[in-house]
């Protein structure tokens, strides 16, 4: 097991290298210069100043040199200064925003897991019963209603309408956490419920389940003892990348609820051609994802010993 983890971590290095190289190449091949200011009221920068800036950021050097410089600095944890937020380094910005996104993401994930998985199990046990339909309904709602619509809906109903929540957004007190958590968590909740249900249904049809039943095991212990272990494998696969996606923030939810997280950079950095920020969030996402997948694979091997860890 330890060897397995080690191998995976060693493998992470070439993976990250490949990720960074692909991103670097595509990013530089995409039309649009990062040298122009991003602010809405800003006018374009004159050519001389552009050259100055290019020199400052090392954009005047050949691409392969730029890439090597990037690698050298990145190894020391230095991703450079953001082209948009010119007075902050990318590391500073991410150190400030990533924990907030992670916090919100984990709360949303917790909501999704705690409600979604039991809902899926109940639905599978009561196939075609009311709970099953409820599960279908919630799952459909979670996925078919995008989080930006949900966000506005929640604000209109709970802030302006009922007045249960005092503010439309912010990140000051736990009260501010409620609505963004729901808006962000409902989608994953729906997905998890669906996956759990269908995989549980699948497992309960397997022959060994029937064998277990034939052996006289009661429905409850059948479900908990046998089906659960196997039925949770597919949702588990999803949980890894889901954590990575939800834990790094959502552009819409964070913008609409004024959550000071990193979600907006996934759209903004690309639109602004903020090269250092793009590289940093791609790598951060890549590492986070790899770690989550590693965790998932470990859980896999625990739940299903037949899967060999290679």
């Amino acid at each position: 097991m330890g060897q397995f983890i080690l191998r995976r971590l060693v493998w992470l290095v070439p993976t990250l290298l490949a990720i960074s190289l692909v991103t670097f190449v595509v990013m530089h091949a995409t039309p649009g210069s990062p040298l122009q200011p991003m602010a809405a009221n800003a006018n374009p920068l004159p050519p001389a100043a552009q050259q100055n800036l290019a020199r400052k950021w090392g954009l005047d050097k050949p691409l392969h040199i730029q890439y090597l410089t990037f690698l050298k600095n990145a190894l020391r944890g230095d991703f450079g200064t953001s082209y948009v937020y010119k007075t902050s380094t990318v590391t500073e910005i991410l150190a400030r925003t990533f924990p907030v996104s992670l916090h919100l993401g984990l709360m949303a994930l917790l909501l999704a897991v705690c409600v979604g998985i039991p809902l899926g199990i109940l639905a599978a046990v009561n196939q075609n019963g009311p709970i099953d339909y409820l599960c279908s309904f919630v799952a459909t709602l979670g996925v078919a209603v995008p989080n930006f619509v949900l966000a506005i809906f929640l604000i209109v109903v709970f802030v302006l309408g009922a007045g249960v929540i005092p503010r439309t957004g912010g990140w000051n007190s736990p009260v501010d956490w409620i609505l963004p958590t729901i808006a962000l968590g409902l989608g994953p909740l729906g997905i998890l419920a669906r996956y759990t249900r269908s995989s549980m249904v699948e497992v309960m049809r397997q022959d060994y389940m029937r064998t277990a039943q034939a052996k006289g095991l009661g429905p409850r212990s059948v479900v908990l003892g046998h089906a659960l272990k196997n039925g949770l494998l597919p949702p588990l696969t999803i949980l890894g990348p889901m954590t990575a996606a939800v834990g790094t923030g959502s552009f819409f939810v964070e913008t609409l609820f004024r959550v000071p997280g990193m979600g907006r950079f996934f759209a903004e950095s690309m639109l602004a051609r903020d090269y250092p920020m793009i590289m940093a969030i791609i790598l951060l996402y890549g590492i986070f994802l790899a770690v989550m997948n590693l965790v998932v694979d470990l859980c896999y091997s625990v739940l299903d010993p037949r899967i060999r860890l290679t």
């Binding site: 604000i155 802030v159 503010r167 439309t168 957004g169």
Partner: peptide
Amino acid sequence: IASDASQLAFEN
């Protein structure tokens, strides 16, 4: 506050 959300904030 992003522009899409500012009217909600005003009304609240």
